[in-house]
Computed example of a mutant assay.
Amino acid sequence: MVMVKDQIEKAKEEIRKLQEFVELAESYRPDTPERHIIREYAFHNSMPLVIKNLNKKGILKDGAEIIKKDVIYVLNSKPKDELHRIIQSWYKRKISSNKKQYSGTPKKPRRNRKLALLMALKNDKK
């Protein structure tokens, strides 16, 4: 019975945190390209969607369209507010899990096909 109460308390705490996040994200006022990136990432948690949406809206960073490098830079920069801190933790957790997922044994590098053909021709001539 105590275990169920603990789970309910944890669930209530998680709901409270989610409600705070929703309020924070909805009230966030993007007045710079960096803050636009933060807000879009908070809503989508997807770098390609952030880039697509901001470029569609005509948001420019340093006079150019937003690119992946811009989003990564903002996500990794020192958090300037609470929403930035939250999405940065999401991003770091996401890339950390991707590294673990793909950190198996390294694949053997593929040989250059043209080089392989040249080597085969060279060996045939001998």
Rank of each mutant, 00 (worst) to 15 (best):
H44L: 01
H44Q: 06
D31L: 07
E23H: 14
A116W: 03
K107M: 11
Y102S: 04
T105N: 06
R113K: 14
K78I: 04
R85W: 00
K92F: 04
Y28G: 03
S96F: 03
N76F: 03
Y41T: 06
H36W: 02
R16K: 15
L117Q: 00
S46Q: 14
Q101M: 12
G104D: 05
K92Q: 08
L83Q: 09
I87S: 05
G58F: 01
N76T: 12
K108H: 01
K17G: 06
E82F: 01
F21H: 11
K68I: 02
K57S: 14
S77D: 13
T32Y: 00
I87H: 08
V74K: 11
R111W: 08
I66Y: 09
S46Y: 07
D31A: 11
K80I: 12
Q88K: 09
I59F: 04
R35A: 15
R16A: 13
S96P: 01
N55P: 05
W90D: 04
L117C: 02
R93F: 05
R93Q: 03
P48E: 11
K61R: 15
R29S: 15
I59W: 08
V74D: 07
H44R: 01
S96N: 06
I72D: 07
K99P: 00
P109Q: 09
R85N: 07
V50I: 06
Y73L: 14
Q101I: 13
Q88V: 00
E34K: 02
A64V: 10
R85V: 01
Q101Y: 12
S103E: 01
Y91W: 12
E26C: 12
N98W: 10
L118N: 05
S97G: 03
R110N: 10
